[in-house]
C-alpha cells in the first residue's frame, strides 16, 4: 500500500480550487438574491414582507444538506440535467440569500428611522434615500458580519460533496477510500480549509474592532 504522495496532495489542492470557485459563485449569486431578500424584508408592502419572512423561515429552518438534495433531485425532476456544480451553486445561493438578507436587514434597520425621515424631508424618493443615505452607512456596519458569514459559506461548500461535486471534501473522501488513512487525509483537508477560513475570521474580527473603535469606552 502506497503512502500519501505528491499526487494526492495535488488532487486535494485541485479540490480546494473547486471549493473556492463554488464559494465565490455562492457569494455572488447569494449576495444578489440576498440583496433582494433584504429589500423585500424592509418593503412598505406588507405582503412582500410576509412572503420574504416565510422564505427566510423556511430556508433557515431546514438543513443545507436537504436543500442540496432538493435542488439536485428537484432539477432532475423538472427534466433539467444539471452538472453537480450548478446544482450545488443554486442550493448555496438559496441558503446564503436567506442568511445574508437577514444580516443586511439588521444593518439597514440599525441605521435609524430618523435618517429615512431626514431623507424624506429633503424630498428624496425612497430609492434615492436608500441608495444615497442608508446603504452607504449600512455597508460599513455590514462588512464584518458579511465576512464572518463568508467563513460559514466556505465551510458549507463541503456539503456539495454529497451530490458528487468534486470539491475538497469529496477529493479527501476519494483519496481516503483508496489509502484508508483517515487521520492524515482528513487532517490535511481540515488544514486546507483552515488556511482559507482562518484569515477571513481574523479579518472579520479586525474589521469589527475598527468599527467599534469609536464607540468603545476608555
Amino acid at each position: 500500500m502506497d503512502g500519501f504522495g505528491t499526487g494526492h496532495l495535488v488532487y486535494l489542492l485541485n479540490g480546494l480550487l473547486w471549493t473556492v470557485v463554488l464559494s465565490v459563485l455562492a457569494l455572488l449569486l447569494g449576495g444578489i438574491a440576498g440583496f433582494g431578500v433584504m429589500l423585500a424584508r424592509i418593503s412598505q408592502r406588507r405582503w412582500l414582507r410576509r412572503v420574504s419572512m416565510g422564505y427566510v423561515q423556511i430556508v433557515q429552518g431546514t438543513p443545507l444538506l436537504i436543500q442540496m438534495f432538493l435542488m439536485y433531485f428537484g432539477l432532475g425532476v423538472a427534466g433539467v440535467q444539471v452538472p453537480a456544480l450548478l446544482a450545488a451553486a443554486l442550493a448555496m445561493m438559496i441558503y446564503s440569500s436567506a442568511y445574508l438578507g437577514e444580516i443586511w436587514r439588521g444593518c439597514v434597520q440599525s441605521i435609524g428611522k430618523t435618517q429615512f425621515e431626514a431623507a424624506e424631508t429633503l424630498a428624496l424618493t425612497r430609492w434615492q434615500s436608500l441608495i444615497d443615505v442608508i446603504l452607504p452607512q449600512a455597508a460599513r456596519i455590514a462588512t464584518p458580519p458579511t465576512v464572518g458569514f463568508v467563513v460559514q459559506l466556505v465551510k458549507n461548500t463541503s456539503l456539495a460533496s454529497v451530490v458528487g461535486f468534486l470539491e475538497l471534501t469529496r477529493s479527501a473522501q476519494v483519496i481516503n477510500n483508496s489509502l484508508f488513512q483517515p487521520f492524515l487525509v482528513f487532517g490535511i483537508a481540515a488544514a486546507l480549509y483552515f488556511a482559507v477560513c482562518y484569515p477571513l475570521s481574523l479579518w472579520s474580527r479586525t474589521l469589527e474592532r475598527k468599527l467599534n473603535a469609536g464607540r468603545r469606552q476608555a
Binding site: V151, K155, L159, T169, A172, A189, S201
Partner: peptide, 8 residues
C-alpha cells in the same frame, strides 16, 4: 470554528 463539520 474554521473547519467544516463534515470533515470533523
Amino acid at each position: 470554528r474554521n473547519t467544516p463539520f463534515i470533515v470533523q
